[in-house]
């Protein structure tokens, strides 16, 4: 049973004395989406980067991170099982969509099983027709879908979304947003969403303002 627990989180710029973000206690259960709202520059993205274990030399960060009850803040990125979908899709430009997805499969299954999973993912996310394409010829909406598919295929225990819709135009954004929440709901992953756009908040979500 996966859940994300944060305790005593404190993010502070080295050059400043007061913290940018303080979260005394936050638990996100399975199937739950928590939204972190705030203007740009408020340290939201930095929080997410720190949660996955990225080094942030200009910040002082402290606190406890637990995934499924296990403390992970001393573990390297690879072992935390936290998925991150950043503002840009960051699809590896030298790989096709299929290869981008393949590089997210870290299970120990047989090759046949992996191929089956991959196909299932392509179908489930409605991106099978893109599978042989290179990332640079896709539209923003297509890239956004592939990026989420890749993050989920990676089977994280927790999902972090960092302004995932901000790079899309208004029409596509609406569509991708609905699609993303539907996919997340289907997976039931505990999700922390960071945004500055009030439109991005799904129904019934807990919202924290920073």
């Amino acid at each position: 049973m996966s859940q994300l627990e944060l305790r005593g989180i404190r993010i502070q710029l080295r050059s400043q004395s007061s913290p940018l973000i303080e979260l005394p206690e936050l638990t996100i259960q399975q199937g739950e989406i928590v939204v972190l709202m705030g203007p740009s520059g408020s340290g939201k993205s930095s929080l997410l980067h720190w949660l996955v274990g990225d080094s942030l030399p200009e910040f002082d960060c402290s606190g406890e991170i637990r995934v499924g009850g296990v403390r992970v803040d001393a573990l390297p990125t690879q072992a935390r099982r936290i998925g991150l979908r950043m503002q840009q899709p960051w699809l590896f430009p030298h790989l096709t969509v299929r290869e981008n997805l393949q590089c997210a499969q870290r299970g120990t299954e047989t090759p046949a099983e992996r191929a089956r999973q991959l196909q299932a993912c392509l179908d489930a996310f409605g991106i099978a027709h893109l599978s042989e394409q290179a990332p640079d010829v896709m539209s923003g909406g297509q890239a956004a879908r592939v990026a989420l598919a890749r993050a989920i295929l990676n089977q994280p225990a927790v999902m972090l979304l960092d302004e995932p819709f901000s790079s899309l135009d208004t029409a596509t954004r609406e569509e991708v947003r609905a699609w993303t929440f539907a996919q997340l709901a289907r997976q039931g992953l505990p999700t922390l969403l960071v945004t500055h756009d009030i439109q991005d908040i799904p129904e019934h979500a807990q919202v924290i303002y920073v």
Binding site: H49, V52, G53, D54, P76, T77, Q78, I82, G83, L84, M86, Q88, W90, F92, P93, H94, C103, A104, R106, R150, A151, N154
Partner: peptide, 24 residues
């Protein structure tokens, strides 16, 4: 960020460096 993205997906530091940075 490319390296971070790769690590989030489970690549080891070395793998991420060789397969993503070196390749790009």
């Amino acid at each position: 960020i490319w390296l971070l993205q790769a690590k989030v997906l489970g690549y080891s530091d070395m793998q991420a460096w060789v397969k993503i940075k070196l390749r790009m």
